[in-house]
Structure formats: C-alpha cells, structure tokens
C-alpha cells in the first residue's frame, strides 16, 4: 500500500498578545520607541514593529501539525502508512520549530530561507508553497492553517490550491485517513459541520479544530534527532525571485485603530445571594429574555 504523504505548512508569527498597546503603531520605524527596521524582516518599513516580541507558532498551523501526527497514529493500526513533512518560510526563527517537529517524528522538514516580510503577501507565499510541492512531487495532502495572524486574509490555502489545480477545503476541524488516496474531512460551513470524503491530492485549511495544541517532545526525543538534517531551500531554487514578486505585491499598512470592546462592570448589591440574583434578573436578564 502506498503511503499518504502529508506536508504541513506552518508560519512562525510574532506573539501579538505580547505587543504593548503603545506599540501598535503603523509607519516607518513603527512603535513608540522608534527603532529602524520594522515588521520582523526587510522591506517592511510601514509595518507595526514586532521584532521585540517573541515568535510563536500560528495557532491554526499548530492545529494542523498536531492533527497530522494524530492522523498517522490513527492510521498506524490499519494498513495505510503515513509520511509527514513540514515546511516553513522564514529566517532563523523557524529553525527551532523544525527541530521540534523532527523530534516529534516528522521525517522531512524544510525551511524556505528568506528574511523577506511576507505578512501582506499571500500570492508570493502561495507561489513558494506551490512551487515547492510541484518541484518535490512527494505530497498527497497539503495542510495549513486557514490564516495566520491579524494581517492574513485567509486566502493562502485557496491560492495554493489554485496554483496546484487541487481541490481545497477550509475551516477543517478533523481529518481521517481512509486509504492511500482518500481522506474523510470535517469542515465548518455556514449552517453546521460537513463531513466529506475527498480524493487526494488536496489542500486543507485548518480552522478552529478541537485539536489545538502541538504535543511537546522530551529531551530524549530531541537528543535522538540531534544532527538530523533540515532541508534549506532558496526562492531561486524554486524559480521564484522573492524580492521581485514582493515588489509587485507591495502593500502599505496605512493606519490602525483600536476597537474598544470594554464594557463597564456593575457590582450587583444586595443583602443575600437571593436578593442579588433577583436584582440581576430584574435589571438585566428579564429584559434580555423578553427580547428573545
């Protein structure tokens, strides 16, 4: 039986939750303290300054990476072997995540080496991924988070699928390997969850899956994989001039506005819990129920 070859694309993003409110500033040298290069890479002078916050795995990509591991485990008891690969586009910050994936059992890990800021460049990102898949010709199922961070419009899975000519499903929450050329996919649609059987190859954009966290390898696991090679690829190896492509897709972050969702808190008074509950009901809940 042929193996199902899964390739998971993941992105290492700034931890936007660690960004101070004062640092959400658009413009050259962004940030309250002003410090030159912005956006965590080159050619991004109009970005929010993010290089001072830690880098984390994009949460949807993290789901995809764990789902792939579980798909292999679930398939291991059957007759379908599953091979796992992972690819990320970025600089040195990607490396430690690739090593973690090796320790977790990913056989092939690849870094498309670039310091270019691709945050607002979905077509360039999609082209890189699609060219890699075409050039290596060893992927049956491509999985990636449906979006990565506040700058991402969620278009990359569709663009990759279009370039490859493969079908695409997004908002995927569960995948089961059925055979060497079929997977069962659950994905969220407007009025519920749709379960479909998909013939491979295909692209899956992972959404709010129950499986949301990537497992953690032990130090022993890491030691066993120490020295295992990480494949490094340049844009040129894929026939892509990243800088030129990026120039064509240039975007400028013009402005940012804080959306305040704070609501005032009210402490409900009363001598007893019963009295407080009654006050809460009378002053708030009753009118809400009546509107239903």
């Amino acid at each position: 039986m042929n193996a199902v070859r899964i390739l998971v694309c993941f992105k290492v993003t700034p931890d936007y939750e660690a960004l101070r409110e004062a640092d959400w500033v658009a413009g050259e040298g962004g940030g309250a303290h002003g410090s030159g290069a912005a956006g965590g890479g080159t050619g991004a002078a109009s970005r929010v300054e993010t290089r001072y916050v830690p880098r984390i795995l994009d949460c949807f990509d993290e789901s995809a990476l764990e789902m792939a591991l579980r798909m292999r485990e679930a398939a291991a008891g059957g007759t379908v072997p599953v091979e796992l690969g992972a690819i990320s586009i970025g600089g040195k910050e990607v490396e430690r995540h690739l090593k973690t994936l090796q320790a977790l059992g990913y056989e092939r890990v690849t870094r498309v080496d670039t310091d270019a800021d691709l945050d607002f460049a979905p077509t360039v990102t999609a082209s890189i991924i699609a060219r890699y898949v075409e050039n290596t010709n060893n992927t049956d199922l491509l999985m990636l988070g449906w979006r990565s961070g506040p700058h991402d419009g969620g278009t990359v899975p569709f663009l990759v699928a279009e370039e490859l000519g493969w079908p695409c499903l997004t908002q995927v929450t569960e995948v089961v390997v059925l055979s060497s050329d079929r997977v069962r996919v659950a994905h969220v649609v407007d009025d519920g969850v749709l379960r479909v059987t998909v013939r491979l190859p295909c692209v899956l954009g992972v959404g709010n899956a129950v499986v949301a966290r990537l497992r953690v390898p032990t130090l022993t696991d890491r030691l066993a994989q120490r020295g295992a090679p990480v494949e490094r690829v340049q844009g040129g190896d894929l026939g892509i001039d990243v800088a030129a492509e990026l120039a064509r897709e240039a975007s400028v972050l013009a402005d940012l506005e804080v959306i305040r969702r704070d609501r005032p808190g009210v402490i409900v008074g009363g001598e007893s819990p019963r009295e407080k509950a009654q006050t809460l009901f009378d002053s708030c809940l009753k009118s809400m129920i009546e509107k239903l």
């Binding site: 101070r20 940030g31 410090s35 001072y52």
Partner: peptide, 12 residues
C-alpha cells in the same frame, strides 16, 4: 542587547 527587548518582555 537592545533595551526595548527587555522592556517589552517585562510588560508581559
């Protein structure tokens, strides 16, 4: 290292 790395870390 740049001090802003430290002040950003400290704020979180």
């Amino acid at each position: 290292v740049e001090s802003r790395y430290i002040s950003t870390w400290f704020a979180d």
